Simulated scan of single mutants.
Amino acid sequence: MFTLQHDNDPKHTWLHNNSVTVLEWPSQSPDLNPIEHLWRDLKMAVHQRLPSNLTELERICKEEWQRIPKSKCEKLAASFPKNTHGCIRSKGCFY
Rank of each mutant, 00 (worst) to 15 (best):
V22I: 06
A78M: 06
A78W: 01
R89Y: 09
L57Q: 07
R49M: 12
M1G: 13
N53P: 04
R67C: 09
W25S: 04
P34C: 04
C93N: 15
K11M: 08
D9P: 03
Q48F: 14
E63I: 10
Q5W: 11
L57D: 09
E58Y: 09
Y95G: 14
H47Q: 15
L50D: 12
T3I: 14
V20G: 02
K82E: 11
H85L: 14
P51M: 09
V22T: 08
K75S: 13
M1E: 14
V22G: 00
T3Q: 10
S90T: 14
W25I: 03
P81K: 05
H85C: 12
W65M: 05
R67F: 08
H12K: 01
E24Q: 09
T13Y: 11
L57W: 08
S90A: 13
K72Y: 15
P26V: 00
K91M: 10
H16M: 01
H47M: 12
M1T: 13
S29A: 09
T84M: 01
E56M: 13
W25H: 15
K91I: 05
L57E: 08
I68E: 02
A78I: 01
L76M: 05
E24R: 10
I88P: 02
L57P: 06
Y95R: 13
W14R: 02
N83K: 10
E74P: 03
Q5C: 12
W39V: 11
F2Y: 15
L4Y: 14
I88S: 00
F94E: 11
Q66I: 06
T13Q: 12
A78C: 03
N53C: 05
T13W: 07
P34E: 02
K62Y: 08
N17Y: 03
E56W: 05
L15I: 09
E36L: 03
S19Q: 12
P34R: 02
K82F: 06
P81Q: 01
M44E: 12
S79C: 09
T13G: 07
E58C: 10
I60G: 04
S27F: 00
P34S: 04
V22N: 02
H47I: 09
E63C: 07
C93L: 14
S90D: 11
C73H: 12
Q5T: 09
P30M: 10
L76P: 04
K91N: 11
L76T: 04
I60D: 08
S79D: 15
Y95I: 09
I68D: 00
D41G: 08
N33S: 09
N18R: 00
H85A: 14
R67P: 05
I68G: 00
A77M: 12
K72C: 10
C87K: 14
N33P: 07
K62T: 05
E56R: 10
H37W: 08
E36D: 05
K70F: 06
L15Y: 15
E24K: 13
N53I: 06
K75E: 15
V20M: 07
H6G: 10
C93V: 08
L38F: 03
K82D: 12
K70L: 14
L38E: 02
P69C: 08
Q5K: 05
G92Q: 05
N83A: 06
E63H: 13
I88C: 01
E58I: 07
